[in-house]
Design a binder for these strands. Structure first.
Lengths: 348, 348
DNA sequence: GATTGGCACTCGCGTGTTTTGAGTGCTAAG
DNA sequence: CTTAGCACTCAAAACACGCGAGTGCCAATC
């Protein structure tokens, strides 16, 4: 079993995959023969038998046609697939959505998610990068009411974070300004999480050595950054998977999948490892990082603007999804938002 | 057909409803007879026939047991239902969640939603009231980077809103402070939407009469409040409805329902009209405000803290839901967050 | 040697038929 | 008014059957 198929076998595999993609039914030798012209069903049968031996195809039962295995799909995606160009209208819509009013960035990326789910007919998962991972542009402290202090952090990408710190009496406007400036001083260019650890470190270091204001500042900001809120997770077009016959057939499986979508952690895991590289990733069936969902494929890419990560977007659907449309869709979106880097379509 | 049933008929209706609630199957005279003791199946049959004539019960087909109609459920909820006390553990969990760290309030209410969906086994819909409807406590303007201005609005209930206004060069720190103070001056006690209209009014009124700063201030804030973002909508425990046999049986219907949940507008409509009154509302089947979902019931209540509306929470499930548990659950939650007002359980 | 027509065989699926049993309505007796 | 008895109904489960799509294999053909 060689890694590369001869021309004819590849051709057959391609046709099987493509036919299966839009019928969701096992495809027989007859169909392929017609579509190829040249060869008779009998010949096709021989080729298909070979493809089955090498693990590219499988038979649900003896007297049925063949369906591609995950392995077969992999080969198709890697070598056989012809990307279908996006429609003018699709590009227009994406551009309009991506370009629409800059702030707030998280709203933009959610819209993109919704749109993608519509265009693709698949479920779309969006992880909005945590503003915590953005670089700070500055920090301000404000008095808010009698005893409360409001800390406002402005981030590089246009994000704004705030924390209301309650019950912090006894600070004059002047104090606040001084503390604010102090924080502002060493915050620029750091991420919130970096700032957090820097503050803690600083606190241990100069414990009550410097003047009262500094200590106070540190205590205050330590209170303001207790936890690192993870990025938000959205799933759009969930119901699209109800459109897939292979899922609807078996209600039990359907439950499993929908239930998985409700678990934030599972969704995050689904898009795992895309965050770093800017490349689009295709995970077919068991290749995806969630073992509980072996019959699901993910096409995902990370989105960034001006070099800072906005989030991750992924289309999730049956293994039998139309990669020739879905992949360009996701790549185009990723490109739209700045990181046009696409180093081929890597598995895993 | 009288509005009030005699004792025996009521008893039978109650048992039918309750049995149906936990079996989801038509219930026969035999079952009821056993449960009542005293009466034989034949007698029960007579009573049931009467109940059917009066519209409380129905037969899916001739040789099946009876199931309650929406009308029957209504009667049950209004007159027959015995509220089941919450478990100690349920109360504890709710209290813990409701009490957990005050800000941000929207996070609290989402948590409550999630918890309710778990405890009830139904889908839980949460509408977080828009901070726009909260009264303002104050407004500040901040310089953010070179050309950007950040407007921060602090609300009564602990909410904080911010808008980043980009490309607004040529304002000194001093200008900003003046403008900020000006806005702050007439904003306290208003809601954001009120402020919005007041600003627009003001702008028309003293168009370029006063000094440059004021006009600038108004233009600036008009830019900051262009739209009124509606309250966020969350749905938790969607998949719980997959647990309901009546929905799973018919995939087509299932699609309709899940699809409806993806439409923000539908979800909002589902909880419509609860916003004003603090009372818990029970809408059974066709009574609910969404005609497209005639086989769904909603138990909803508005939540408020310190007199200001936090949002609305509703449990959504099949008509055959366990009202005796669900209603107290929702009412207790509403009570927990301050508005213990509950003027009976009103339909419509 | 690759290709192809022919042919027997397999097996899932849809259809029609039968059986079963839960539940009813009615009637006549208590 | 209640109840036992009985005939009747009808959905759902169990079963049987034939169709047809599709296969594998073999022998004939190019």
């Amino acid at each position: 079993m060689s890694t590369v198929l001869d021309d004819r076998a590849a051709q057959v595999l391609r046709l099987v995959v493509e036919d299966y993609i839009d019928t969701a039914e096992p495809v027989g030798s007859r169909t392929i023969s017609k579509r190829m012209g040249q060869l008779s069903p009998a010949t096709i049968r021989n080729i298909m038998a070979d493809l089955e031996d090498s693990g590219y195809l499988a038979q649900p039962h003896t007297s049925a046609g063949r369906i591609p295995t995950a392995f077969g799909f992999r080969y198709y995606v890697d070598y056989l697939l012809e990307r279908r160009q996006l429609l003018r209208s699709e590009r227009d819509q994406l551009q309009r959505t991506a370009g629409a009013g800059a702030p707030p960035p998280d709203e933009t990326i959610r819209q993109i998610g919704r749109l993608l789910s519509q265009l693709s007919g698949q479920a779309c998962v969006v992880i909005v990068a945590s503003p915590d991972d953005q670089k700070l542009r500055g920090i301000r402290l404000l008095r808010a009411g009698r005893d409360n202090v409001l800390l406002v952090a402005v981030m590089q990408g246009g994000w704004v974070q705030h924390r209301l710190i309650e019950d912090e009496p006894g600070l004059t406007e002047g104090d606040l300004e001084k503390i604010g400036n102090y924080l502002d001083g060493f915050s620029v260019g750091l991420t919130l999480s970096q700032l957090r650890s820097k503050i803690l470190q600083e606190m241990r270091h100069e414990k009550s050595r410097y003047d009262r204001v500094m200590t106070r500042a540190l205590a205050l900001s330590a209170r303001a950054f207790p936890d690192s809120p993870a990025g938000e997770v959205y799933v759009e077009g969930r119901t699209n998977i109800l459109e897939q016959p292979e899922f609807v057939e078996d209600v039990h499986n359907l439950k499993r999948i929908l239930r998985a979508f409700e678990e934030k952690s599972v969704v995050v895991r689904l898009l795992d490892r895309v965050l770093d590289g800017g490349a689009t990733r295709v995970s077919i069936g068991t290749e995806n990082p969630v073992e509980e969902l072996p019959d699901i494929s993910v096409v995902a890419s990370s989105l960034q603007r001006d070099g800072s990560p906005l989030g991750t977007v992924g289309l999730v659907g049956p293994v039998r999804m139309d990669y020739s449309r879905i992949i360009p869709l996701v790549e185009y979106t990723a490109g739209l938002l700045g990181s046009a880097k696409m180093e081929g379509v890597q598995p895993k």
